[in-house]
């Protein structure tokens, strides 16, 4: 335990913890996306899926707790790293134009908090089903909840914007984690960025296609 604490105390340790929790959250996103895509199958399918997930409360809550823990640690480490860097340059430059700065890297600082806010909204909207946010919410009626939810155009647009942001966050996070975990190789190194782009596009497309389908009338069939 001492080792782990000592490790976390270092900036590198925090970065690696961010990477590992990032990987777990990413894998969850893949699962979430596959689950969502069932909406294009028979309307009963996704409801069945929702019931399946809720079949064991113990299972459901352990997964939720793990995810919450990862999210919390991810955010805490991010905040600590950000705070450290802020202190590293107390006097700012009058003019500062560092070249070749990765655009996605710049967005991390504010895309992170916005995504956190979005997650909260999303949970209240489609998991808790707060009346004020989703008047037509039915417990475990996933098909109904999603379709009705996204039929409200502002909601659908908010989801799309947030998901685009998430995509940026993912792209930078994915290729960064290769770097942070030291996964580099003369042969595969150059493929790290394209791979990050590919995974990001797949995830983003997988999520965004649902609100778009609702908005364009593809759904409900």
């Amino acid at each position: 335990m001492d080792k782990a604490v000592g490790f976390y105390e270092s900036t590198l340790g925090k970065k690696i913890v961010m990477a590992v929790t990032g990987i777990i959250l990413f894998l969850y996103l893949v699962g979430h996306m596959l689950g969502n895509l069932q909406i294009f199958l028979d309307p009963a399918q996704i409801d069945k899926y929702a019931h399946m997930l809720h079949a064991s409360a113990a299972f459901l809550w352990s997964v939720r707790l793990v995810l919450l823990f990862c999210l919390g640690v991810h955010i805490l480490a991010a905040f600590q790293v950000w705070w450290r860097s802020r202190k590293a340059r107390p006097v700012k430059y009058k003019v500062f134009n560092p070249p070749d700065v990765d655009y996605a890297a710049k967005t991390m600082v504010w895309s992170g908090p916005i995504i956190a806010a979005f997650i909260t909204y999303h949970l209240l909207h489609l998991t808790v089903g707060l009346d004020s946010l989703h008047p037509d919410y039915i417990h475990l009626g996933a098909y109904n909840n999603v379709i009705k939810g996204f039929q409200q155009t502002p909601v659908a647009i908010a989801y799309i914007v947030a998901l685009l942001l998430l995509a940026f966050h993912l792209y930078h996070g994915l290729w960064s984690l290769f770097q942070t975990m030291g996964w580099d190789h003369p042969k595969f190194g150059p493929w790290r960025r394209p791979l990050a782009v590919l995974l990001t596009v797949v995830i983003a497309a997988g999520f965004i296609c649902v609100p778009v389908a609702v908005m364009t009338g593809v759904l409900p069939r």
Partner: peptide, 27 residues
């Protein structure tokens, strides 16, 4: 400060040192 992979270090390095070095350090 902490590295967040902006990569501007590599871009301004007079000797073009690659950020692969950072990956090696992390590992």
């Amino acid at each position: 400060g902490a590295c967040t992979n902006y990569t501007s270090c590599e871009a301004t390095c007079p000797k073009g040192i690659s950020i692969v070095g950072i990956a090696k350090m992390n590992k």
